[in-house]
Structures are given as structure tokens and as C-alpha cells.
Simulated assay, not measured.
Amino acid sequence: MSGNKKILLAGGGTLGSVSPLIAISSKYQADYLFVGTENGPEKDFVMSHGIDNFQSIRSGKLRRYFDWQNFLDIFNIIVAFFQSIKIILKFKPDIILTAGSFVAVPVVFAGWLMRKPIVVHQQDILVGLANRLMAPLATKITVVFNDQIKDFNSKKTVVTGNPVRTTTNVFVKDDKLVVITGGGLGARSMNKFLRPFVEKIIKSGFKVYHVLGSKNADQALDIEGYYSDKFINKSMLDILSQADIIISRAGMSLISEAASLKKALIIVPMPDSHQERNASFLAKHNAALMVRQGNYQIMDRYLDKLLAKEELRLGLGENIYKLFPKNAINDYIILIDQILND
């Protein structure tokens, strides 16, 4: 295929479904259009990483239980489907890439109807409803681990690992650092759970950098050695690279970035969500420490160990690094070229 390729990326609502796509776009030369939600955090994030062409569509969540909101969301999904057709007709993408999210579903359905190649990427251990709907229409499905192949049609499923952004910045590290983050939208309940431990961390000789979330600025603490931000766009990976310990939710996107940096990770999964399966998978492989939100005793015990023992921190970092497949971006790019050159 000659000329500059045109690639449509679809995802949003949270940054978990966006980060792998940004990692690909940073290494693969093409004309990109990103289709996301109207009110999510992804627009600023995407544009800060060099993709200026962003279009939003309606978004509706598909619930597996009765809720009056379902009726409005069905209408939004129908509108989004026709918006997607219009966008695809105008942009004429050579391929559509998504890493999940409900906003991508109408885009993929429209793309399939218009015979566009589609790659659906599955990050989380538990397959969500959006990817279950999109997978049958995909040209190829990419997964992070071999264990995930069983969840899809094996004939069109490829293990690539999880594409992650990279940092080339080199820092002189003076202080030991714990980074706390609840993901792209922040996590108010997790911030509240971790509040009693901040002083303990600082008294142990560590600084704390806390990404609160865009609506959680009121949860910032006034303690020497504690720094906070509401939301980080482009420099988040640089901050993670400085951490000795990362305490976070259990979204696979941030976990993968921590793995690439060989960081000791304490994960507090969102209660009653797919994140609990991600956390259990890592804990089973001794690649991270899992703490259920509200279990103060376990968090206190794990912090005592990690703050005191550098060898334990380094060991966890090595374990999570070894668990994840390497060269994910390169393998994903090879797959894109294979599809486009078929």
C-alpha cells in the first residue's frame, strides 16, 4: 500500500482505552483521526500527544441490567452509529483501531458495514461487554497474554502484549518517591482510603506525588513532602519513571506502563469491577501487591514491608516486567502492515 495511511482510532470515556492507541500513534507514521466521547478526558490527552484531528460522537453505556437510562443510551448509540458513518465516509480510513470502550462500538459497527479492516485490542483479563460486541466484527483481535486467547476466535487472535508509551527523559533522582494515582479520572474513594497512609509514607523518608483526579482537588493535603495535581497529560510517564512505589487502581493500561518501567506496584482495584480480575492475576504471579479498598490492615502491612525493603521493591519490579510480553508496539505495527498489505 503506497502513500500515507489513514488510521481511525476510537476510544474514550476513561484513558485506559486511549493510552495503547496513543502508544501506537507515537511510533507509526500515518494520518490519524481520533473519535471519542463528548465529555471525557481523552480530547486534551490525545491532542497533547500530537493528534490534532479529534471528533466526538454520542456515547451510551450498554448495561446488562434494567435501568431507565438504557432507553436514552440506546437512542444515543443509534445517533452515534450515524455520526460514525458520516465520519468514516469523510475521513476514509484504511483501518480502524480500538482498545475497547462503549464509544467505539458504533464506530466499529459502522466500519464493519463499510468493509473497513478493524483491530480490537483486549487489555483486561476479563472481557468487557463492549469488546464482546466488537470482537465478532474484527479483522484481528489482539491480546496481552496467552491466557486470553481462549476468550476469542483463536484463528484471528494475536498475542502482542500491551502497547505502552515510552519516555526518553533522563532524571537525576534525589528523593525516594511514592506516586498515587487513580487513573485518568482519578478515584475519590481510593484517595479517601489512602489519606491516613500519606503521613506514614513521608515519615519513612519518601516524598508523595498524588494525582487526585480532575474533580478531586479538595482532597489535597497540606503536608510537607506531599505534592498533588488534578490531572496530568503528557508528563505522567516521566512522573511514574521517578517512582520507587506506585499505588494505583488496577487498569491494565497503567499497570502495563508500570511494568515497562520495572516499578513496585500496590494495586487497589475498583470494587466489584473487572479490575479485581486484573489485580488477582498480577498477585497470583507475584507481580504486584493487591489491597482491597477499605482493608487498612493489609495496606499498612504491605507499606511497612515495601517502604523498608528496597530489595522487595526491586523484586516486584522485575517480576512485573518479566510477566508482560516485550516489543508490543513493534508486533502491533507488524500486524497493521500485514492487514493493510493483504
Rank of each mutant, 00 (worst) to 15 (best):
Asn53Asp: 14
Asn53Tyr: 11
Phe54His: 01
Gln55Met: 13
Ser56Val: 03
Ser56His: 11
Ile57Phe: 08
Ile57Tyr: 03
Ile57Leu: 09
Arg58Glu: 10
Arg58Met: 05
Ser59Pro: 10
Ser59Trp: 11
Ser59Lys: 12
Ser59Val: 10
Gly60Pro: 01
Lys61Cys: 01
Lys61Met: 04
Leu62His: 03
Arg63Glu: 09
Arg63Val: 06
Arg64Tyr: 13
Arg64Leu: 15
Tyr65Phe: 15
Tyr65Asn: 11
Asp67Phe: 13
Asp67Ala: 14
Trp68Ala: 12
Gln69Cys: 09
Asn70Lys: 05
Asn70Thr: 10
Asn70Ile: 04
Phe71Cys: 12
Phe71Val: 11
Phe71Pro: 15
Phe71Asn: 06
Leu72Thr: 11
Leu72Pro: 12
Leu72Phe: 07
Asp73Trp: 06
Asp73His: 08
Asp73Arg: 14
Ile74His: 10
Ile74Ala: 08
Ile74Leu: 04
Ile77His: 05
Val79Leu: 12
Val79Pro: 09
Val79Phe: 06
Ala80Glu: 09
Phe81Pro: 12
Gln83Asp: 12
Ile85Cys: 10
Lys86Trp: 14
Lys86Leu: 06
Ile87Leu: 10
Ile87Lys: 06
Ile88Cys: 07
Lys90Val: 03
Lys90Met: 00
Phe91Ala: 09
Phe91Lys: 05
Lys92His: 11
Lys92Ile: 08
Lys92Gln: 11
Lys92Asn: 08
Pro93Tyr: 11
Pro93Lys: 03
Pro93His: 09
Ile95Cys: 12
Ile95Asp: 04
Ile95Ala: 11
Ile96Asn: 02
Ile96Pro: 01
Ile96Leu: 06
Ile96Gly: 12
Ile96Ala: 14
Leu97Gln: 05
Gly100Ile: 07
Gly100Ala: 11
Gly100Ser: 14
Ser101Asn: 10
Ser101His: 11
Ser101Tyr: 05
Ser101Cys: 11
Phe102Ile: 02
Val103Thr: 05
Val103Cys: 08
Ala104Trp: 00
Val105Cys: 06
Val105Arg: 02
Pro106Gln: 03
Pro106Ser: 01
Val107Leu: 04
Val107Pro: 13
Val108Ala: 07
Ala110Gly: 09
Ala110Asp: 04
Ala110Thr: 04
Gly111His: 00
Gly111Ser: 01
